[in-house]
């Protein structure tokens, strides 16, 4: 049953990946400007030689098939801008850093968010609720880049507690992790609160209370588990996004992660890097979404896996 379901999903995943690669490839080619468009136009012959070197002189469909071949063999080609690196190297250098930063931020966001949300729900419409929600809303409405600059200004520059930038040890990871976790933490907190309030109003919680169970037990054993489903829904894309880097945070704190490649490759029209990072990101994304869908059924047995909608 599970195996059949997984097989089907993996088949769908491959189709999704194929469509993502195809769509990205053609959108990329449709966007004006190329890797050799520059403020100082080089002589036509040199441009032609460069295009020949990178096989950009081939007809579009041939370039496309070349690229598909590259993806299948996981050879993503050389970078146009960073001549000393291949895309594979860039990903294998940047991803561990981004993943490290992302994992720390993710842990902070999930635990912090759930704790804030649960407190707010248990003290619904009391001051604890409002303070937790004000913190959460600040996290939502002050975007990461402003928060990052604040943290850097106060913790590093003014108080000298932590390093300003660079990536050379645990203390270097604290500020970027905090800045990166703010928005997801706030969102998770709000989602958890909203669901907890709903769940706490349900009959089975009243039953549990009537049985004389301790509030703590009720919260942990009965309420949280049921309140987490929407949070899990949100986690799939969040994990994919956060593990593959955050451009602005990496830039401000000088973190050598993968986030900048996503943005810079596009502004540089570094075709191979655009495609490489997209493929890499998409794989993580579809796998995470699959895991989330499976996690649904584990958290809420009422949801059926494969034939969820069949009557």
């Amino acid at each position: 049953m599970l195996i059949r379901y997984l097989g089907k999903r993996i088949f769908f995943m491959l189709i999704s990946l194929f469509l993502i690669v195809t769509a990205t490839f053609f959108i990329m080619k449709a966007v004006p400007g190329g890797p050799f468009t520059s403020e100082k136009n080089v002589p036509e012959e040199i441009k032609a030689a460069l295009e020949a070197k990178y096989k950009l002189d081939l007809p579009l469909h041939e370039q496309y098939f070349e690229y598909l071949k590259g993806v299948i063999t996981w050879d993503l080609g050389p970078s146009f801008t960073e001549k000393s690196s291949t895309v594979n190297e860039m990903i294998s250098r940047g991803f561990p850093v981004s993943a490290h930063l992302g994992a720390q931020a993710l842990l902070l966001a999930i635990f912090g968010g759930i704790i804030l949300g649960v407190i707010a729900a248990l003290k619904h419409n009391k001051w604890q609720d409002y303070s937790a929600m004000v913190i959460a809303v600040l996290g939502l409405s002050v975007p990461g880049f402003i928060l990052a600059s604040f943290y850097q200004y106060f913790f590093a520059i003014q108080w000298g507690l932590l390093p300003i930038a660079k990536w050379e040890g645990f203390e270097y990871t604290i500020l970027p992790s905090l800045a990166l976790s703010a928005s997801p933490m706030a969102f998770i907190a709000r989602l958890t609160r909203s669901n907890m309030i709903e769940v706490l109003g349900q009959d089975y919680i009243k039953t549990a209370k009537a049985k004389g169970l301790h509030t703590f037990t009720i919260t942990v054993k009965h309420a949280i588990r049921n309140a987490l489903l929407p949070v899990i829904t949100y986690l799939g894309p969040l994990i994919a996004n956060i593990l593959t880097g955050a451009f602005v945070i990496e830039r401000i704190f000088g973190v050598p992660g993968l986030g900048r490649e996503f943005v810079l490759s596009i502004t540089n029209r570094d075709y191979t890097v655009i495609m490489g990072t997209t493929v890499f990101y998409s794989i993580i994304l579809v796998v995470m979404i699959l895991i989330v869908d499976i996690a649904y059924t584990l958290i809420d047995p009422r949801i059926k896996l494969a034939d969820a909608g069949r009557e």
Partner: peptide, 28 residues
């Protein structure tokens, strides 16, 4: 609500849209 194939196809469309680099789409 409908689940099954409908769900599968609709959500995969959403995934694909989500994965295409947004910046590229916006420049286009």
């Amino acid at each position: 609500f409908y689940g099954g194939k409908v769900d599968e196809i609709m959500m995969r469309i959403a995934d694909i849209l989500f994965a295409i680099p947004y910046l590229l789409v916006v420049i286009l």
